[in-house]
């Protein structure tokens, strides 16, 4: 298949709905399994930090949340560009989905950071560079959320949010630099692509597991919300009606066996996780 045809199909809600059925259950089970393993490993089996003692275990919550918070905003910018420049319909749905998810991750990163700060720095809240940058990120999410809520028409809301997200992404490096203008007392980034982490493997391995789990959760959330939104938006279209009339009944997260009669069976096939 040539690239252009493939690209076009990627933007087609119907096609996406068809292929993404198995993805959703895969990502969700993977996410829950990884998060469970990483958390138990980190809480019970990783060695305590020689300076911070056991309070360092908050890292297994804090770092995945902080990484999600940033990557989701970057994704918002990418989705915004796809929507505004290439007019890709799905990107609007991605945008709609990611805002609350990213807001949750950012809030968790700030909350866990504050809790970690108390035993480590002796204060719940310190306006250091990275903390402040994350706070500003939360404000950026608030802005997107408020804008989306203020515009009644979903398509127009998506486009407005797309533009704001792009402006925000361009601004993020400047914001980061400006808040680092103050002296910073945060520890350096835990994972860098170029250098090996300074932590021993017994400490960073569970972190890696949790980070992967968090990204799987993001993927599962994205796929699930997209499938939902597609069905809702396209509910008058031919293929969704066929789906409901039982000719191809696979509504819901998991691909289900073909069932000849549609009506009552759908109610039992409960949704999601």
């Amino acid at each position: 298949m040539n690239f252009k045809a493939w690209w076009h199909r990627l933007g087609s809600p119907k096609w996406f709905y068809r292929v993404s059925g198995p993805w959703q259950s895969l990502f969700l089970s993977l996410a829950l399994a990884l998060l469970a393993i990483g958390t138990v490993w980190g809480l019970a089996f990783a060695p305590p930090d020689y300076q911070q003692g056991n309070s360092f275990r908050i890292i297994y919550v804090h770092v995945p949340a902080a990484m999600l918070a940033q990557s989701v905003y970057l994704l918002l910018g990418v989705a915004g560009a796809l929507l505004l420049v290439w007019r890709m319909k799905l990107a609007g749905l991605v945008l709609e989905t990611l805002v609350p998810f990213g807001m949750g991750a950012t809030a968790l990163a700030l909350f866990s950071g504050a809790i970690w700060g108390k035993p480590t720095w002796g204060a719940w809240w310190v306006f250091d560079g990275r903390t402040t940058a994350t706070l500003v990120l939360l404000f950026l999410y608030f802005g997107l959320h408020a804008l989306r809520r203020a515009i009644p028409d979903p398509a127009a809301a998506s486009r407005a949010c797309a533009l704001l997200a792009i402006v925000g992404v361009i601004n993020i490096p400047i914001i980061k630099y400006s808040v680092h203008w103050w002296t910073t007392l945060h520890q350096g980034a835990t994972f860098k692509l170029t250098t090996a982490p300074a932590m021993p493997a017994a400490m960073w391995a569970p972190l890696l597991v949790n980070v992967l789990g968090a990204y799987c959760l993001l993927a599962a959330n994205l796929v699930a919300k997209l499938r939902n939104a597609i069905l809702r938006r396209e509910r008058s279209s031919r293929w969704v009606r066929d789906l409901m009339d039982g000719s191809q009944p696979s509504i819901g997260p998991a691909p289900s066996p073909n069932r000849p009669s549609a009506a009552p069976s759908h109610s039992q096939r409960s949704a999601a996780p």
Binding site: V136, L140, G143, I174, I175, V179
Partner: peptide, 27 residues
Amino acid sequence: ALTVGLGGGGVLLALLLAPLHLPVLVF
């Protein structure tokens, strides 16, 4: 431009712009 014609534009505008204006304030 994004908020023109929306109800409660003032507060909304402040919400959108505060984080974007922050670097100017800091410097």
